[in-house]
């Protein structure tokens, strides 16, 4: 897995590239948390456009970051999830608290 960061103001955009499972979740978690301790970050957008596989490990990663971000009064969004992955997020109830957007632009608009 590869993780790429870009910023738009106080919003951190995390592009995840590859497969998100238990093995790679630890790496993603570490990378993102390293960015979250920077005071400039308030909101996070997870870009799933290049995620080729995800299992329930992905739910835990997003839920965990949500807790941190909520303490900072920030927001989280996920974008560009393919149907199989969206179904997994839906099942867990995550989409009731984290919006799934069609594009990074629309997610930024919600922040």
């Amino acid at each position: 897995m590869q993780v790429k960061f870009t910023r738009k103001g106080a919003t951190l955009i995390v592009k995840i590239i590859g497969e998100l499972d238990h093995h790679s979740a630890d790496y993603l978690r570490q990378k993102v948390d390293g960015e979250l301790i920077k005071p400039s970050t308030r909101n996070v957008i997870f870009d799933f456009s290049s995620v080729s596989f995800m299992d329930s490990s992905g739910i835990g990663v997003i839920m965990g970051r949500l807790k941190t971000i909520q303490k900072l009064n920030g927001k989280i969004a996920i974008v560009n999830t393919r149907p199989q992955i969206k179904r997994i997020f839906e099942m867990s109830g995550l989409l009731k608290i984290v919006p799934a957007c069609e594009s990074i632009e629309s997610a930024i608009g919600m922040m």
Binding site: S56, V61, G64, I88, M91
Partner: peptide, 10 residues
């Protein structure tokens, strides 16, 4: 450990 408890449901 940030498990969500959704494995069996999936």
């Amino acid at each position: 450990m940030e498990r969500s408890g959704m494995g069996f449901t999936v």
